[in-house]
Computed example of a mutant assay.
Amino acid sequence: MSADKLDIYRSKRDAARTPEPVPEPGPLPSGHDDTFVIQEHHARRLHWDLRLERDGVLASWAIPKGLPLDRKTNHLAVHTEDHPLEYATFEGEIAQGEYGGGLMLIWDRGTYETEKWTDREVMFVLHGSRVSGRYVLFPTDGKNWMIHRMDPPPEDGLPPAADLRPMPAEDRKRLPRDQEAYGFEFDLGGTRALAILGGGKVRFIGADGAPLTPESTPGLEELDGLGKAAWGLPAVLDGRIADVGGAPIYMIFDILRLNTGDLLGRTYQDRRRTLDHLSLRDRRWQPTPWFPGDGKPVLKVARDQGIPAVLAKRLDSPYLPGARSPYWLRIPVPPAG
């Protein structure tokens, strides 16, 4: 048995190569055993890390699909090494090639109450800004545990979206001068639509906030399967329903909410990274390609392919529902010649 609860943690990290806190061996800090943090971890596969303060460290579980929102579904929770208490405030980019390499973002923080803590069962109540409720963790096989929600589920499983409208772009005649500060996308036309996913269902709202229907948007019923994408997690996506080869395709270029969390304040670059990790690719939907740093090749390809315009989005841009701003620009493709 390890003499120090953080020995395994230290053995997997080089303090000279990672921005993570790596405290020296010594007495552990004392706390109140009531702090929790959930971190979104962009490692080889997107997942969430649940950490509960316990006896001077953060007991930790990696949860590939995040915390379950209803009592019908248990989610896998892989028990990992204890983390130092300082990790409760950590955000940053862990270098590729290092253990856990990738972006680490705080998803939620708050306090929790322990109802039971044994080797066979950890029962607790979370009080966070995004996640609240009563949960239980229990082991199944080695490091594999399961997490179960004990509270009733949200009413319909769909994330709130009444306050959301698609963010429009300003029209410009040419590419921005500081292209390294932007990501570039193709504007394929079609119907702008937010997709609200949850509970295996999907509904769409248009640029004016009104619901889209099969009568108003032909081919919409062919997108019903999108409700089970995003690993079955509740989400709000932004994109366009475009006609590609005579079939409707939902081209996704942003994600506004995911698994009870609001992503509007995150940068465009971070939202795109989250979207890409979800692997939302099917014959009826897919993420649009994006190209950070240089819009000239994108403009050339758009002209060669007959695409009408290119979008330039600042990498540090938040998502401003319904607000037109210089963060997002639409540049018409000039004719060849």
Rank of each mutant, 00 (worst) to 15 (best):
G227R: 00
L223V: 03
G110I: 10
P21A: 15
Y9T: 08
E86F: 07
R54Q: 10
L158D: 00
L28H: 05
T73E: 14
F36G: 00
I241K: 04
S30Q: 06
L194I: 10
P218F: 06
W290Q: 07
Q305K: 12
D70T: 15
D187Y: 07
T80M: 15
R192Q: 13
A162K: 07
H277P: 00
Y327D: 14
G183A: 13
Y268C: 08
E170P: 00
V202Y: 00
K143D: 04
Y112P: 08
P326F: 12
T267Q: 09
I252L: 13
D276L: 09
A181Q: 08
V125K: 15
L76W: 00
D4E: 14
D7W: 09
P154W: 00
Y182T: 09
L126I: 11
H277C: 08
G227N: 03
E24W: 07
T111A: 08
L28T: 01
G245D: 13
L67H: 03
G225D: 09
G26E: 05
P214G: 05
F186L: 06
G293D: 11
L237S: 03
A210D: 14
V333I: 11
P332H: 08
A235I: 04
W117R: 15
E93V: 07
E115R: 15
P153L: 02
G26I: 04
R13M: 13
G133K: 11
G66D: 01
L237A: 04
G246E: 03
P297L: 11
Q305T: 07
R272F: 03
I205T: 10
F138Y: 15
S2H: 06
W117D: 15
G198N: 01
S216R: 15
T80K: 14
G142H: 01
G261H: 05
P168V: 01
A195E: 05
A15L: 12
S129R: 12
G245R: 06
D254I: 05
R172K: 08
W145C: 00
P23A: 09
P21W: 10
G110E: 06
Q305P: 04
E98G: 06
T114H: 02
T118A: 14
